[in-house]
Write a protein that binds this DNA or RNA. Structure first.
Lengths: 212, 212
DNA sequence: ACCTGAACACCGTTCAAGT
DNA sequence: ACCTGAACACCGTTCAAGT
């Protein structure tokens, strides 16, 4: 007979994210989430259809934490920067979850709200239709790609390797074959993810201004 | 006593990629790869240390297929576009593998070669040091982010849903709350991934020109 | 409507043994 | 040096039964 649900979706989201933050993506399973909630694995199937939905819960929890504020009278470019930064910061606060953000599609209001908040300044820049879609694609691609940042890509840190060791490894590549890689490896030593993201954002905004 | 290896790394790469292309990421396991090679699961541990290395094999197989050619006398911007397109096409040819490309770091010559090929035109644009690093981050973020394109993000296709159905679903969102999403959903109907990538690339190149 | 334990077909990996 | 089967601790999920 009609039983009230034992958990809310928010509880599941928060608990799943806590597990990922603490133990990484591999730490999250139907069984570990159930145990953290004090119940049996099968109970979760009253809330999700398949295991992959746990990943979506994590994405929603992260995106829902995105915060930004827009200075009154700010131009569309500063408004765009604010929202983009807010999303980037939320994602970056949960490094283990980043691969899921890149990879999982979610359809909660929180996700839609962030998307709409990015679209507003882009529309203010004079874009509509296809041009608006394309600018949106470029911005989201840059944010998610940059959030992955030094996590993936050729210049990524090896698991359990110090930044200095990674840079040293690249520095020891043959300079005649990989002059560019050797050079940016040196530059990476005095760099950090946040300032790199800002610079990337500036480049894209400059491109958006040039093609508006 | 000294036995010659049964397989080459290239064989493992090609077989792993074939499995992912045919059966998706979930189809790839130590056991399925071993079976496809006609051996037992434990044999693979002579070639890889852990399961995750299978993912790296797939990434390498995909990146190694990137091809481009550079018109003689081309400007740095066209050279950059050529390489970026070449990488994007290789990635796009293996949709199931895209999440791995976004997420796994590889250190084969093929990966380094592509990175260096992107760095060459960026260096020609007059950048060095930190500016070169930042431009490189922006370009790779955009390529990988855009490759994921309509696969993730709020406008992603639902699994097993037609493009028309996805667009219809977005069109039915409340217009007063999500005017931008409703608008780009309509634009997405007459769009395709390749032309969206070209447009994104153009925007970033414009930004690179403006800040060179 | 929602909860739950037993059971099944998988999975990565350790170990010990082979050539 | 490289190959391999048995065994172990996990995993997602089906099923049948409970309230």
């Amino acid at each position: 007979m009609g039983r009230p649900p034992k958990f809310t979706r928010e509880q599941l989201q928060a608990t799943a994210l806590a597990i990922v933050d603490a133990h990484g993506l591999e730490g999250l399973s139907m069984r570990t989430l159930a145990e953290a909630l004090g119940t049996g694995a099968m109970t979760l199937y009253n809330y999700v259809a398949v295991r992959e939905d746990l990943d979506v819960l994590v994405v929603e929890a992260v995106v829902a934490q995105a915060r930004w504020d827009i200075a009154p009278g700010a131009g569309w470019d500063d408004e765009l920067r604010s929202v983009a930064r807010g999303l980037w910061r939320a994602v970056r606060a949960h490094p283990h979850a980043v691969p899921l953000i890149l990879t999982r599609r979610s359809r909660t209001p929180a996700t839609f709200d962030v998307a709409e908040a990015l679209l507003r300044p882009l529309a203010r820049s004079g874009r509509s239709g296809r041009a608006l879609l394309q600018a949106f694609r470029a911005v989201t691609a840059l944010i998610t790609g940059a959030a992955q940042g030094e996590l993936a890509g050729p210049l990524a840190l090896q698991a359990g390797e110090s930044a200095a060791a990674t840079i040293a490894r690249f520095q020891s590549l043959p300079v005649d074959r990989y002059p560019g890689l050797v050079e940016i490896a040196a530059a990476a030593a005095g760099s950090d993810a946040a300032s790199e993201f800002e610079a990337c954002l500036d480049m894209l905004v400059a491109g958006l201004q040039a093609t508006a």
